[in-house]
Amino acid sequence: MAKKVKLKKTLVDQILDKAKIVHESLAINALEGELPNDIKREEIFKTLALTGDKSGPVIGIVQITEHLSEKKLAKISGNKKVSMIPQKDLQKTTGYIHGANNPVGIRQKHAFPIFIDQRALELGQMIVSAGEVGRSIRIDSQALADFVGATFADLIED
């Protein structure tokens, strides 16, 4: 069991609290080091910022253990092709640095289409970044999708 420490609320925590959306604040860096025993790698999702040839920026959210299929994301988002936003352009596009992109914060500032891999719905809950490197939230997958206007779809490379 992870040690329960009173964490300083991130902006994402504050937004979700204000909206009365139940979530759990976590101090984990999913990209490095060991995970607490009560967290499985497949529960952790990465928020990827891409740009479509027709739509402009589009957000794809997949498990950190999987690879996003750009083909599938392009098709579902109405693009012919999508490609990752270069790291040097990431912060000016989404407002976040690499490793801190999150659907809640992005949705507050931008109306980018957001797609979450359907495995999140199957798991029931998911862990995503809380907008700061080393901080995450655990949240009901459907509640998150409803709040950010996301669509569930198969986004994983076969």
Rank of each mutant, 00 (worst) to 15 (best):
M1V: 04
M1N: 08
A2R: 12
K4I: 00
V5N: 14
L16C: 05
D17A: 04
K18H: 09
I21R: 09
V22N: 11
E24C: 00
S25L: 07
I28L: 06
N29D: 15
A30N: 03
E32W: 01
E32H: 13
E34W: 02
L35N: 06
P36E: 04
P36K: 01
I39R: 06
I39S: 07
K40S: 13
K40L: 09
K40G: 06
F45A: 08
L50I: 08
T51S: 14
G52A: 05
K54C: 01
S55K: 12
S55D: 10
P57R: 07
P57T: 10
V58D: 00
V58T: 03
I61L: 01
V62P: 05
I64M: 11
T65I: 02
E70V: 10
L73C: 03
L73A: 02
L73H: 06
A74P: 12
A74F: 12
K75D: 15
K75Q: 15
I76L: 11
I85K: 11
P86S: 14
K88L: 13
D89S: 13
D89K: 11
D89G: 07
L90H: 14
Q91E: 15
K92F: 02
K92G: 06
T93F: 08
T94H: 12
T94S: 10
T94K: 10
G95Y: 02
Y96M: 01
H98C: 01
G99T: 15
A100L: 06
A100F: 12
N101D: 11
V104M: 02
G105A: 02
I106C: 05
R107S: 09
Q108S: 03
K109G: 00
K109C: 00
H110C: 00
A111I: 01
A111P: 09
P113D: 03
F115S: 04
I116Q: 10
D117P: 05
D117Y: 06
Q118S: 15
Q118I: 15
Q118A: 15
L121K: 15
E122K: 15
E122V: 10
L123D: 15
Q125H: 15
V128N: 00
S129D: 09
S129M: 07
G131E: 10
E132S: 11
V133S: 04
G134K: 08
S136R: 04
I137L: 11
S141N: 10
Q142G: 03
A143H: 12
A143G: 10
L144V: 00
A145Q: 04
D146F: 02
D146L: 06
G149H: 00
G149A: 03
F152Q: 11
A153L: 08
A153H: 14
D154W: 08
D154L: 09
D154G: 08
E157A: 12
D158N: 14
